[in-house]
Nucleic acid binder design. Structure first.
Lengths: 186, 186
DNA sequence: CTATTTATTATACTGCGTCTAAATATTAGG
DNA sequence: CCTAATATTTAGACGCAGTATAATAAATAG
């Protein structure tokens, strides 16, 4: 995905494949949709799909993964999780709820997708740890963040900004985390 | 897996397959070991492997899964997460650290196994929710439990009983959870 | 000895993910 | 214009996971 000016132009895009996949998942369910189906609908070959995504399920988690990458980089630079989260929340529009969150059950793939979700939770925990939160607090903080994200995505169209939920849930654990963790969080 | 007295006797066992798999994973790494390899070493056919496990990775998580099933049933009966955890901890010997926990990096399968771990975390969260912990506390409690389990399994051979770690980590969040959650926890 | 029960096994199939090599479409520069 | 360099698409083959089915084998009950 270098895409300067030279070379054969792209025939598709992450977005296009995302949309094709979303359509099919809603029509036929996740497990009954093959990668071939997605590629076909997007007008490219199966091989090309894998130029854009590592695997079938990633197509659903694109937004979440982008957020995690952003957060990870942001933490590396700022070394302050609280600030990194503010930056992230600021960049996420209230409408931009990941597809996976808004239309989970419609895709009838609970079991298939549970593992993928858990993978992201673990990744988040790794970022929290990287941010300098003390080991014994890592999972408590991670839990608070997951909680906030779920409440945010679960709230209807009238949801507030993501930052509000994050702030609220972190505030609740402020009094019980180590001093070191607090320093990185608030 | 009914196994009364009638019918053809079993040629293998979960344990035997577990051990065969563990050997191979340590020898060759997780991703370079096929289900065929495992079955062969255990002296059965590939098809038989799937009579004992749902999939390749489950073989590493048997102990964790057993604990989760136990916990889930226990919660259904007692409707009290705290008590269910005590019962669980009481039944788990200090040496019985799941294979996956003790020999994680030796298997060179970080990425492959991360998803499986996350899956269990999500399952745990579901049990916590089922136990009547209030929704906004579910992930905080889950985080505390994961934290405890990791500290327990990460401690050397001199580790204390699992119950100690669980109690300690839950105690830390006691002051910040809802009254309803506390009722189910303590 | 036969019927019943349970487990093992062979076999075939779908689909994911990987890899390689070839084909295609574009730009840069002589 | 033509050629080289570059970037992307694509076909095709492969290994392996996981599912399903039907046949076979080994035990017990009566």
């Amino acid at each position: 995905m270098t895409s300067e000016k030279r070379g054969r132009p792209r025939r598709s895009s992450t977005r296009a494949l995302e949309e094709a996949a979303a359509e099919l998942f809603l029509e036929q369910g996740y497990s009954h949709t093959t990668v071939d189906d997605i590629a076909s609908r997007a007008g490219v070959s199966r091989a090309t799909f894998f130029n854009y995504f590592h695997n079938k399920s990633d197509v659903l988690w694109v937004d979440v993964d982008r957020a995690l990458v952003y957060l990870s980089q942001s933490v590396m630079e700022a070394s302050h999780l609280g600030r990194a989260l503010e930056l992230l929340a600021h960049d996420v529009a209230p409408q931009a709820v990941p597809l996976i969150a808004s239309q989970f059950e419609a895709m009838e793939a609970d079991l298939d997708l549970r593992g993928d979700g858990g993978q992201r939770v673990i990744q988040l925990a790794a970022i929290v740890a990287q941010a300098g939160v003390s080991p014994r607090d890592v999972w408590m903080v991670t839990g608070a963040l997951v909680s906030a994200a779920l409440e945010w995505s679960g709230a209807g169209v009238s949801r507030a900004a993501l930052g509000n939920y994050l702030g609220e849930h972190l505030e609740r654990i402020r009094s019980v985390v180590d001093a070191g963790s607090a320093a990185s969080l608030f």
